[in-house]
Design a protein around this nucleic acid. Structure first.
Lengths: 238, 238
DNA sequence: CCAAAAGTGTTCACCGTACACCCATGT
DNA sequence: ACATGGGTGTACGGTGAACACTTTTGG
């Protein structure tokens, strides 16, 4: 950090959220419809300006997230994704956005938090489709969020954050299959994840199913890293 | 991004650099001595305020980096590390710092770029030592930079960015050994890295050594990802 | 000849993959 | 009985770790 005591005028900082969840067997992202220009009526990532001069940016992201989802922070994963600062990304003024990535289980209702704005879910595929219009550079942000999510579940236990508090190995496998868009052998996956110490804690209960053997229910354990990682078939991301 | 058209007053955005290099068989980080309070006389990461309202933050980082190192951007690696926005991280005013991580080969002179400020190198170990004082929250940033670097060379070819344009397999291995602070078997390492397609391009020349068989010289090839990654012995970083 | 560093060959243990097979439930 | 999904056993192939060994230089 340099010496000097001046600020660029007309410089604003916002915190935006890329909230991912799995709904209807699809990876979906939370979007809000913009009420004013620019991009009036189009969809954008939820977010907002810093609430006060003394608010930490991480805290601002947490606040936004719990407001939008209505969930408690412990049931979510939140991490900083990247900061976007192209000079023309907002036509009104210079806006720098610190963007956060969040993983959430499927939520009872999109706007359970009581927020006035209409938050909706859209499949990530559809949001990234050529013909879909997303405000600002948010389509790029969604692309980055997807890539980060795909990489992250390889070597962490965060995939479980997409599941309900109690979930089966199948539920967890579905998360991987949906995010990676590739099938996974159920038998080997089962052995793999149950073999990681501290990842899955059996609750003692079992599912009541419509057919088939009942599955053991698990809770997420304290482990955060997977060793060795669950590697995808194809070379990482390129 | 939300609706609204106002800015927090007294909010400044800076771009800081965590530049890593290998000098004297140690991982070192570039620091500058602060000329004015706060933290006058103590060391801090190089960086600065955005040069103009229309400057992209990535471009600002590149500019700072080439100014400080005197090297052309092609010989360096630069990526965004993280944004730090704790409200009290600068006692003067609210400052949000977008921090970048850079890898550089050993440089001819620390301030070859002709910059007036005195840039120095300090071993990362020493910078992170309990008794070393570093300005602002920059010690935390250095910690994050080190962790990122350690992870990054696992699955990318970026370790070669620490080497001269032409280097041997031994040179590259030393980079890994120094950054990971752990010995690596020279034979297996050799086979591993020479086996990655597009990683190492032989120049045809060999080293002239003070003893021992001359080593083949390589240039960095177009490959960017390592598949499979070079995994460290111990569980990743925890 | 010896030391030192580069580079190759070989062995072995482990692990991911593939898949046969058994288990426990609903219909 | 049969379908459906949960979960275990096992054989095979690839790869990383360990290390003996050869190659090529300087002293």
């Amino acid at each position: 950090m340099p010496d000097g005591d001046w600020t660029i005028p007309q410089l604003a900082v916002t915190v935006d959220l890329a909230v991912l969840t799995i709904r209807s067997d699809q990876l979906q992202i939370m979007l809000v419809e913009r009420g004013i220009p620019p991009f009036q009526g189009t969809l954008a990532l939820p977010g907002g300006f810093l609430a006060s001069t003394s608010e930490d940016i991480d805290a601002a992201a947490t606040r936004e997230l719990t407001e939008e989802t209505g969930l408690r922070a412990e049931h979510l994963h939140l991490e900083q994704l990247r900061t976007y600062g192209a000079p023309d990304r907002d036509p009104r003024q210079r806006v720098i956005t610190v963007c956060y990535l969040a993983f959430a289980p499927d939520l009872p209702s999109p706007t359970a938090g009581g927020d006035a704005r209409a938050a909706t879910w859209m499949p990530v595929d559809k949001a990234l489709h050529k013909r879909t219009t997303i405000a600002f550079d948010h389509k790029q942000i969604i692309t980055d969020a997807l890539e980060r999510a795909r990489n992250k579940i390889e070597y962490t236990t965060l995939a479980a954050t997409f599941c309900e508090p109690e979930f089966t190995v199948s539920d967890l496998r579905k998360v991987y299959e949906i995010i990676w868009a590739q099938p996974i052998d159920p038998r080997n996956f089962h052995r793999k994840v149950t073999g990681v110490p501290g990842f899955l804690i059996p609750t003692g209960d079992r599912t009541i199913r419509h057919g088939g053997r009942p599955a053991t229910l698990y809770r997420k354990g304290p482990a955060t890293l997977l060793h060795p990682p669950i590697l995808r078939a194809a070379p990482h991301g390129r």
